[in-house]
């Protein structure tokens, strides 16, 4: 039986979890754990994604996220129900919690798998280099701990019956338990990770000031501005705007890459975009040859012209 961790933040589902459930379904009967009663309301929709039973774990140490409490609770539940696999999405939290479970059990953990083949030894394919290299690996362990690479597989509903919901009371001690003690909201509403349109700039933008035309273009559709690692390292944009392997992963409807060459480090951060439009002076740049649409030319002329054209059509 497969135990899937439903990632949520005080009751708000991380939708990427549903992608992990699609992988879990192929491996066997899927049960899910929701850590903290704040997430209890999420149980209802999980049946549609093939979950037969949802364990809602409740404890005061689960009132907010904490890697130790989430890991220890999941470990206890996996043991209690005889799970063969514990699986989560390969997000920051998913990978962190799984690593804490693995460390507690001194068991292997495979991060960011894209396919799993059960057998005597389990075969997995996982991504390295943020997705630009695949590794085939064998896992030998009584309990397999896996995270699923985000955006490797689409989430889909299978129309299953409503899942059975059962409570789980973990035994937790607050000694040495790390958890969130405070939080700050930096941005309300649309963020880089969730924006439907991302207008991103790289070396070709040339300066911090020049990003203003990208801001203006993004404003036309309620989009947000992202950037490449070069732009961050030059101090043109804050690191929180960085798209790529060591920055934010995005999957917008349209990704407009302005003056970005498209090094693999950047590409893996935006390859899940539905459509990519490249604006670049170099017709041979990887971003141009891999994009759905490309405009070869000077972004400092093209971007303002696009803004003007949009305004004209809108009257």
């Amino acid at each position: 039986m497969i135990l899937a961790i439903v990632e949520h933040d005080r009751g708000t589902l991380n939708e990427l979890t549903l992608q992990a459930l699609a992988v879990a379904r192929d491996l066997g009967d899927v049960e899910a754990v929701i850590l903290g009663s704040a997430g209890a309301g999420l149980a209802e929709e999980l049946g549609a994604h093939g979950v037969s039973k949802v364990h809602v774990a409740d404890h005061e140490l689960l009132a907010d996220y904490g890697p130790d409490a989430w890991a220890e609770t999941t470990r206890q539940l996996a043991d209690a129900i005889g799970a063969e696999v514990v699986l989560a999405i390969g997000s920051d939290r998913g990978n962190e919690v799984m690593a804490h479970i693995a460390a507690r059990l001194d068991a292997p953990m495979v991060a960011n798998v894209i396919s799993v083949t059960p057998g005597e030894d389990w075969g997995v394919v996982r991504v390295r280099w943020g997705g630009s290299l695949h590794e085939e690996a064998l896992v030998v362990a009584p309990l397999k701990l896996l995270t699923v690479a985000p955006h490797a597989l689409a989430a889909s509903e299978v129309g299953g019956p409503q899942a059975e919901v059962v409570p789980f009371m973990p035994s937790l001690s607050d000694e040495g338990v790390t958890r969130v003690i405070d939080r700050a909201t930096l941005a309300e509403g649309i963020t880089l990770a969730t924006a439907p349109i991302v207008v991103s700039g790289g070396r070709g933008v040339g300066s911090a000031e020049n990003f203003s035309i990208l801001e203006e273009l993004a404003d036309q559709f309620g989009g947000v501005v992202g950037c490449s690692r070069v732009a961050t390292n030059n101090g043109w944009r804050p690191h929180s705007d960085q798209v790529g392997q060591t920055g934010t992963r995005v999957a917008p409807d349209l990704y407009i890459a302005c003056g970005i060459s498209g090094a693999i480090q950047h590409w893996v951060g935006m390859m899940a975009s539905k459509k990519v439009m490249a604006i670049n002076t170099d017709a041979e740049a990887p971003m141009v040859t891999k994009a759905d649409y490309a405009l070869v030319g000077n972004l400092h002329e093209i971007v303002p012209a696009i803004i003007e054209e949009i305004r004209n059509r809108r009257g």
Partner: peptide, 12 residues
Amino acid sequence: PGGQSMVALANP
């Protein structure tokens, strides 16, 4: 060694 071993690498 632990319980995970690499079999092969491949360029996607």
